[in-house]
Amino acid sequence: MKVCIKLLGELRQYLPECGKFNQCKLNIPTGSTLQKILSQLKVPDDQDFIVLLNGDLMQKQEYASIIPGSGDEIIIFSPIKGG
């Protein structure tokens, strides 16, 4: 199944090759957890990031249990400061 991934700000450097600018449709095995999908994206482990699933804020402890559905939107960004 496919999910829509958006990597915002400086995280867009980790966008898979199939993507355009900062988003892509990612093929994942049905039943993949959020954790598994994140590991596929190669965002470094030491990078502090936030995850929104269909507009809802996900907590880190939920990553291993949440299973996104087909067509879901996953937004990932690093908390930067504005100006």
């Binding site: 958006k6 700000g9 400086e10």
Partner: peptide
């Protein structure tokens, strides 16, 4: 280590705040 400001400027925040609400 972090190149986000150089690559995107502070405007990178636009997609973040818009997604966050």
């Amino acid at each position: 280590k972090r190149q986000g400001y150089r690559r995107n400027g502070t405007l990178a925040m636009m997609d973040i705040t818009n997604s966050f609400g």
